Simulated scan of single mutants.
Amino acid sequence: MAQTSLLQGKQFYCREWVFHKLQHCLQEKANCSSSAANKPSLVASSGNNTGVVSGKGAAWGVLLVGGPGSGKTALCTELLWPSSPLNLQRGLHRQALAFHFCRAQDSDTLCVGGFIRGLVAQICRSGLIHGYEDKLRDPAIQSLLQPGECERNPAEAFKRCILLPLLGMKPPQQSLFLLVDSVDEGCNISEGEQTSTSLSGTIAELLAGHFEFFPPWLLLLCSARKQSKAVTKMFTGECRPREASLHLSIMRIWHLQNLW
């Protein structure tokens, strides 16, 4: 997992609209957190840069899509390690609870168990959620985080080690975000077919199956190639059973076009 900027000190240009929209989404999440109602609902997306989202209180996130070279990873990197002291992203990075960069050439970054353990470690180090570490002292939770066990049952580990502890904590003073770049990496995807590269599934499958149960103050921000339509459908709910449609959430979809 990357711990420093992948841009290696290079200057970041353009895409200011993304940071402004993200700031707006984080403010909406803050409003959701203070609202009593938090029922997920299903809506449709439209437009080139943004999607239509359901009323406040619904569980939703953001999916950045674009072709190869459109700047998805560069934008995620700039969001976490801003290169300019004056731009909006300089303040947004303080609201990052945890992050993960998936890389096709690095199998360790595609391991679901490693992904979960990495998030747990980052949340503990962040100091943004007071009391989270205390929740992890339960021996049953510790056993779920052990190598091998986490890979055998990633869904249970994700729920009991991350989601349930966060849901039981006092909401932070400001909304936070979880960033996962290139979430479609590790999936052997073709239209109408979806297979995983490991027995424990993929990071995309794990997040798509649980993001509607995120705390209302936590925004899930992912990026993926626009060609990965099956991955996009995971998050929009289009490929889930019809009988479950009333319980689905949707992600806002922002399209990144190439700069040239």
Score class of each variant (00 low, 15 high):
residue 13 Y to M: 06
residue 159 K to T: 01
residue 220 L to M: 08
residue 120 V to E: 07
residue 10 K to T: 05
residue 161 C to W: 02
residue 36 A to C: 10
residue 85 P to W: 08
residue 195 T to R: 09
residue 146 Q to W: 01
residue 102 C to N: 10
residue 143 S to I: 00
residue 58 A to F: 06
residue 41 S to H: 03
residue 15 R to T: 09
residue 3 Q to R: 14
residue 184 D to M: 03
residue 249 S to M: 08
residue 71 G to I: 01
residue 103 R to F: 00
residue 137 R to G: 04
residue 233 K to E: 06
residue 4 T to E: 14
residue 198 S to Q: 15
residue 237 G to W: 02
residue 197 T to V: 08
residue 47 G to Q: 09
residue 112 V to N: 00
residue 86 L to T: 13
residue 6 L to S: 13
residue 87 N to T: 14
residue 118 G to N: 09
residue 67 G to Q: 12
residue 250 I to M: 06
residue 31 N to F: 07
residue 5 S to N: 05
residue 163 L to S: 09
residue 215 P to H: 10
residue 160 R to V: 00
residue 73 T to I: 03
residue 161 C to G: 07
residue 43 V to M: 12
residue 147 P to L: 07
residue 32 C to D: 15
residue 67 G to F: 01
residue 248 L to P: 00
residue 203 I to C: 10
residue 183 V to K: 05
residue 32 C to L: 05
residue 8 Q to V: 02
residue 7 L to A: 14
residue 122 Q to R: 13
residue 174 Q to W: 01
residue 157 A to R: 03
residue 82 P to M: 12
residue 187 C to V: 13
residue 205 E to G: 10
residue 216 P to E: 10
residue 141 I to W: 05
residue 85 P to D: 11
residue 191 E to Y: 09
residue 179 L to M: 12
residue 181 D to A: 10
residue 244 A to W: 03
residue 174 Q to T: 09
residue 42 L to T: 03
residue 125 R to W: 04
residue 200 S to A: 13
residue 249 S to P: 00
residue 226 K to W: 01
residue 212 E to W: 04
residue 137 R to C: 10
residue 133 E to Y: 01
residue 163 L to W: 02
residue 19 F to M: 12
residue 64 L to G: 09
residue 128 L to F: 02
residue 199 L to H: 08
residue 232 T to R: 15
residue 42 L to A: 11
residue 144 L to Y: 04
residue 207 L to F: 05
residue 41 S to T: 00
residue 72 K to S: 03
residue 77 T to V: 04
residue 142 Q to M: 10
residue 101 F to G: 08
residue 28 E to A: 08
residue 165 P to Y: 13
residue 134 D to E: 15
residue 83 S to L: 07
residue 46 S to Y: 01
residue 42 L to V: 09
residue 252 R to D: 14
residue 209 G to W: 02
residue 167 L to V: 04
residue 210 H to F: 00
residue 112 V to P: 03
residue 6 L to I: 07
residue 65 V to G: 13
residue 60 W to T: 09
residue 183 V to L: 06
residue 63 L to H: 10
residue 178 L to K: 02
residue 198 S to F: 02
residue 67 G to M: 06
residue 8 Q to H: 02
residue 153 N to P: 01
residue 158 F to R: 10
residue 62 V to F: 03
residue 90 R to N: 12
residue 143 S to Q: 11
residue 248 L to F: 04
residue 66 G to Y: 01
residue 76 C to K: 05
residue 101 F to M: 07
residue 45 S to G: 14
residue 222 C to H: 03
residue 5 S to R: 12
residue 184 D to G: 05
residue 65 V to T: 15
residue 20 H to V: 11
residue 79 L to R: 06
residue 111 C to V: 04
residue 246 L to Q: 11
residue 89 Q to E: 15
residue 180 V to K: 10
residue 44 A to Q: 15
residue 67 G to D: 13
residue 123 I to M: 15
residue 212 E to A: 11
residue 162 I to Y: 01
residue 94 R to A: 15
residue 174 Q to K: 06
residue 50 T to E: 14
residue 114 G to N: 15
residue 132 Y to I: 03
residue 124 C to H: 09
residue 18 V to N: 11
residue 180 V to M: 03
residue 15 R to A: 08
residue 171 P to T: 13
residue 229 K to W: 00
residue 170 K to Y: 06
residue 143 S to L: 07
residue 208 A to W: 00
residue 255 H to D: 07
